[in-house]
């Protein structure tokens, strides 16, 4: 197939229904591109200070972690994904103890995957054993710190990775966005897709400081389009098809709308590394919002 961008994939999973959509995509990709799939599970949060006890993610009970327990959990994961695990799949299973985001990043640090694949939010944060509202969510932390693209599948509608034909790339003209663009071009080329470059003009008064007049908005749209052309068009020409658009509104809503409009199979964005100004990090940045809402898998790129 000639596609070797995802040779090593780190699939972080809770091995519960919450990760099912992500699992479908993970196994899809791994089988399509003969990737090495590392199924990685963080068993639970260490508790009791320095003791060996963790609160198990699945049962929410306190368990004592030792070799037997690790073997048992590994077996459980195998059983859970039984239908996917056939001989054609190159996979390994690892389990760890700790805070999920940190342990996923630690695993990534050693195995240096080409792609990290995460499931979506586990629903109501307060019901999980990971409630650490001051610490922020797993997704945010991994997306922010990972050295490789992070693919997130949140909604069931997004859980499909088939013959890709339309990729949407959202840009905010930052340096990170340029890196994300490099990646988007590569994928589009390798998979022979169309690439739509998109910028959302933030016209919320919170961002602009005032209500913009229609003339101002249209002026800015023209400027942004010029920017897109200058920055990306020369390389876009290498593709079989491309388009460039700028819409105004609330950025994450516009991106989701645009992706739907383009029948996108994949959304690629840079992770906004600039800190979120509001104190409440649970609201998250654009990427998090897009991930939660998008109808296709989203890849977030940081470095």
């Amino acid at each position: 197939m000639g596609f070797d961008m995802f040779k090593k994939i780190l699939f972080a999973t809770s091995a519960t229904a919450a990760s099912d959509h992500a699992a479908r995509v993970a196994f899809n990709i791994a089988k399509s591109y003969q990737s090495n799939l590392n199924i990685f599970h963080v068993m639970g949060v260490p508790t009791r200070g320095y003791s060996q006890v963790v609160v198990d993610v699945k049962t929410k009970e306190e368990v004592s972690v030792d070799e037997d327990y690790i073997a048992w959990v590994t077996e459980e994961i195998k059983t859970y994904y039984e239908k996917y695990l056939d001989e054609s799949l190159k996979y390994s299973i690892d389990v760890a103890v700790g805070l999920p985001a940190r342990e996923i990043l630690r695993q990534a640090k050693t195995m240096k995957p080409d792609l990290i694949l995460l499931g979506g939010t586990t629903g109501d944060e307060d019901e999980t054993v990971y409630k650490k509202s001051l610490a922020g969510s797993t997704l945010q932390k991994v997306a922010k710190a990972a050295n490789c693209p992070v693919l997130v599948v949140n909604r069931p509608a997004a859980s499909f990775w088939g013959g890709l034909s339309n990729i949407v790339f959202g840009t905010d003209f930052s340096k990170t966005s340029d890196k994300a663009f490099d990646f988007a071009i590569k994928v589009a080329k390798a998979l022979d897709c169309e690439l739509s470059v998109f910028h959302a003009l933030d016209i919320t008064p919170l961002h602009t400081g005032k209500m913009l007049s229609q003339d101002e908005i249209e002026q800015q749209i023209r400027e942004s389009l010029r920017k897109i052309r200058a920055r990306y068009e020369s390389r876009l020409k290498e593709l079989k098809g491309y388009s460039m658009d700028v819409w105004e509104g609330i950025p994450f809503i516009e991106i989701v709308k645009y992706a739907r409009d383009k029948h996108a199979d994949l959304l690629i964005m840079a992770h906004h590394s600039r800190k979120v100004p509001s104190g409440d990090i649970r609201l998250g940045g654009n990427v998090e919002q897009v991930i939660v809402r998008a109808g296709c898998p989203v890849i977030s790129i940081n470095k």
Partner: peptide, 8 residues
Amino acid sequence: FNGIGLFR
């Protein structure tokens, strides 16, 4: 005290 399972 935090770390001792026996006296949890």
